[in-house]
């Protein structure tokens, strides 16, 4: 793996909410076209780190960062970062399915429309392609004009994935995407993640260690705002180098 060039790279990255530390001194490399999982107990900063990558944390007042967080070689916390381009290239799927209260079609078309796509036939093509990529097309192809809120939770989450894919990102951030879903819907999302990694770099934060073990190639273990261990998933779960990691993955702590 490590022969590949990292697509996301952080060097001593620190994030503060006011005076409170979110994460500190995170140095890790995330490799393209693979699934990287971030695990750790609640409040360990795993979501903070993930949400720093596309700077969605900017919506919170009073934040400060230190260190470097490179996406495709550009430090995203540089003053000259184009947030629109960053977020279109780094898509995000949130913890709770959050489709817009619009039709299924308009949800997926939201991103392309922001990019200035107006032609209906082209939009239709994008919507179909992305819904297929998110394994939702078969279930909704006859009711694209129905409100997205009428879908089930699992369908809504796959719609949110399709919506994120519609801006053609390279990277897909997933912040506990299955925590609000039942096991069957979770299984579908996991299958989807497995499929998507051939085209996208996926970083997934999860509470569920089995999920991390199932879907990811590499796993990072965060605790109290620090990166404790980052290695191949097999190593983290079978033979972790640090005692803390072992305690966590074996369920003795956290």
């Amino acid at each position: 793996m490590s022969d590949k060039k990292a697509i996301i790279k952080s060097e001593n990255f620190c994030f503060y909410y006011g005076s409170k530390i979110g994460v500190k001194n995170i140095s890790m490399e995330i490799y393209p076209k693979s699934v990287t999982a971030i695990i750790g107990p609640s409040g360990c900063g795993k979501s903070t780190f993930l949400r720093s990558i596309n700077r969605i944390n900017d919506l919170i007042a009073n934040i400060k960062t230190k260190g470097v967080l490179l996406v495709k070689g550009h430090n995203v916390y540089d003053k000259n970062t184009n947030l629109v381009n960053l977020r279109q290239q780094v898509g995000m799927v949130f913890q709770k399915p959050n489709p817009f209260p619009k039709s299924i079609f308009d949800n997926v078309a939201y991103g392309p429309r922001l990019q200035g796509v107006k032609k209906r036939s082209y939009l239709q093509q994008i919507v179909e392609e992305k819904l297929k990529a998110a394994a939702l097309w078969g279930e909704v192809k006859d009711e694209l004009n129905k409100s997205a809120l009428a879908l089930s939770g699992g369908q809504q989450q796959r719609l949110c994935i399709a919506r994120a894919l519609a801006t053609n990102p390279d990277i897909l951030l997933m912040d506990e995407p299955c925590s609000a879903l039942d096991p069957i819907a979770t299984g579908k999302i996991e299958d989807l993640i497995d499929k998507l990694q051939t085209d996208y770099t996926i970083v997934i934060v999860t509470h569920n260690m089995q999920q991390a073990a199932r879907v990811s190639e590499r796993t990072a273990f965060f605790c109290l705002g620090e990166l404790i261990e980052y290695d191949s998933t097999v190593k983290i779960f079978r033979n972790p180098a640090k005692k803390q990691t072992e305690d966590y993955v074996t369920g003795r702590f956290g």
Binding site: K96, N98, A164
Partner: peptide, 12 residues
């Protein structure tokens, strides 16, 4: 906030 985040997250 979830809807706003979804929108910002898509580059709006």
């Amino acid at each position: 906030r979830d809807l706003r985040e979804a929108s910002y997250g898509l580059g709006a």
